[in-house]
C-alpha cells in the first residue's frame, strides 16, 4: 500500500482510542468530589508541588546517548555496504570504534556513567 499506510495507521490508532474512550464515557457514571481529584500518594495529601526542578541523574547519559545514536545512524549505510567493500570496511569501522571507545572510556573514567 505504500506510504499511505502510515496515514491509515495513524487514523486507525486515533479512531480506535477515541472510540474506546467515548464508549467508556458513555457507559460509565461519573461523579466528582474533592478526594477523587487528589494526586495519588498512598492516601496522604501531597506535600509541595510535583513540578519542580529535580536531579534526574541522567543528563550525562543523554549526552553520551546522543553521540552514540548519531554513530548508530552512520553505521547503517556502512552496514549495508560491508559486503561490497570488503576488508576496507572492517578497517574503517575498527578505527571508528576505536575513537568512539576512547571517548567512552574517557567518559567512564570521568564518572559520567554513574547514576547520581
Amino acid at each position: 500500500m505504500g506510504a499511505a499506510s502510515l496515514i491509515v495507521l495513524i487514523i486507525a490508532a486515533v479512531a480506535f482510542s477515541t472510540i474506546a474512550i467515548l464508549i467508556a464515557k458513555v457507559v460509565t457514571k461519573s461523579t466528582t468530589n474533592k478526594q477523587k481529584g487528589e494526586a495519588i500518594e498512598c492516601g496522604i495529601p501531597t506535600k509541595g508541588p510535583s513540578w519542580i526542578q529535580f536531579n534526574v541523574g541522567y543528563y550525562l547519559f543523554a549526552l553520551i546517548f546522543l553521540i552514540f545514536d548519531v554513530e548508530l545512524v552512520f553505521l547503517y549505510p556502512w552496514a549495508v555496504a560491508v559486503k561490497q567493500t570488503g576488508w576496507m570496511a572492517l578497517i574503517e569501522i575498527v578505527i571508528f570504534f576505536f575513537i568512539l571507545f576512547a571517548g567512552f572510556l574517557y567518559a567512564h573514567k570521568k564518572g559520567a556513567l554513574k547514576w547520581v
Partner: peptide, 25 residues
C-alpha cells in the same frame, strides 16, 4: 521531593507510613 510511601503502598506490607525526602533517586 518529599514523598509519602505508605500507608497504602505495596512495599510496606501493611500500613506503615514513611515520609521520604528524595533528591533525584
Amino acid at each position: 521531593l518529599v514523598i509519602n510511601v505508605g500507608p497504602q503502598h505495596p512495599a510496606t506490607h501493611g500500613v506503615l507510613h514513611l515520609i521520604i525526602t528524595l533528591n533525584g533517586e
